[in-house]
Write a protein that binds this DNA or RNA. Structure first.
Length: 323
RNA sequence: GGCGACAUAGCCAAGUGGUAAGGCUCCGGUCUGCAACACCGUCAUCACCAGUUCGAAUCUGGUUGUCGCCU
């Protein structure tokens, strides 16, 4: 694999991702050890302090001295989003390379990964735009179809690609147009052509579906054994509830419903498993359409992590990320 | 052994003569400031056989199976 000299001057970046519970964390540590790397978590839930068990956050002792970034940086009452993630992650990447280390983005939030990898520009979306509230009241009074009609008028292309029931996205497109005067569909088209400023390797871990699902189910059971209920109690006492932003993550949402008396504990547990499986599926769909990804299927390596690491290291050498 | 009830997709389940609702799962997909979010799509010919009828998941007879009750 020959890389242009231009390519090798780019900032090196390794991405290690895959569906939930596939085994990213374990491999990321091993990879970091061998590459002299530091890990940037690309996870929308692990950024929160106190959300440990339910988010399957890596434990201090498991880190084995490898620096981890963007974990435990927020209180459960803070809000977080791609834009912020991107800003922080880029900053970290520069810090890490500045130290002569290799940044490794590890985590399952594909959208976040995409944002930093292709330096997506999320137009400044400052302050409490009254437009959002207005849109909400329009939705309430006239319904989703009407809102979608409005979008058709200002940005027909977006309207075509966003289903009218997907109110969240319809509103965002409308809001974007109102604020910037630009069509979101056009902005996205442009962003789509971005060329990554990184000399990157995008690894997606995967496993047979049935194995993955078993791992998910088992992991949820383990979360309970490890004290998920206590963790939830603590958050509950702090004032977290179903509505809290950070409680929208799988595992938390269901447990908060349980705490509110909506469902039983058993129901909550089954729901967590189901929702996690659905999530894993969505993640896979996402990665399937990302460009330049390299799939690493456990069964293809006889489930041998050493072999997988070997493959990754080889690719690092081939691309000039490591010599 | 006798009596009765029931048999519709992986699961739950509508539908009593006019050409198979719905929900869930599974599977597939969308995604560019809430993304562990939000949203979309596909999936059966009605246990089997024979009959009645222009036409049956729906009626009749039989077969098989399941459940309940009885001896």
């Amino acid at each position: 694999m020959v890389k242009s000299s231009n390519e090798s001057k780019k900032i090196p970046l390794i991405i290690l991702t895959g569906p939930t519970a596939v085994g990213k964390t374990e491999l990321s540590i091993e990879l970091a050890k061998r590459l002299n790397g530091e890990i940037i978590s690309a996870d929308s839930i692990q950024v929160y302090k106190g959300l440990d068990i339910g988010s399957a956050k890596i434990k201090k002792e498991e880190m084995q001295g490898i620096p981890h970034h963007l974990i435990d940086i927020l209180s459960p009452f803070d809000e977080f989003n791609v834009y912020t993630f991107k800003e922080l992650a880029v900053e970290k990447i520069h810090e890490i390379t500045g130290r002569g280390h290799i940044p490794i983005i590890a985590g399952g939030t594909g959208f976040y990964i995409q944002a930093v990898l292709y330096e997506i520009d999320f137009k400044e979306n400052d302050e409490e735009n009254s437009c959002r509230l207005e849109l909400e009241s329009i939705l309430k009074e006239k319904g989703a179809v009407y809102l979608h009609e409005l979008l058709k008028e200002c940005d027909p292309e977006s309207a075509e690609s966003i289903h009218y029931n997907n109110v969240k996205r319809v509103m965002r497109a409308l809001e974007f147009y109102n604020e910037t005067g630009e069509k979101l569909s056009e902005h996205n088209k442009k962003q789509h052509e971005n060329i990554s400023p990184y000399n990157f390797l995008y690894f997606v871990l995967n496993n047979d579906r049935d194995v993955l699902y078993e791992r998910i189910n088992r992991r949820v059971d383990i979360m309970l054994q490890e004290g998920l209920e206590d963790e939830i109690d603590k958050l509950w006492k702090m004032g977290c509830n179903k509505e809290t932003f950070s409680m929208q993550g799988i595992g938390y949402r269901e447990m908060m419903s349980y705490k509110s008396g909506d469902i039983s504990l058993d129901e909550a547990v089954e729901l967590i498993k189901l929702n996690s499986r659905h999530f894993a599926k969505r993640q896979l769909t996402w990665f399937r359409r990302e460009k330049c990804v390299e799939w690493l299927n456990y069964p293809d390596f006889g489930n041998d992590k050493e072999k997988m690491l070997g493959k990754m290291i080889n690719r690092c050498i081939e691309t000039g990320i490591m010599d």
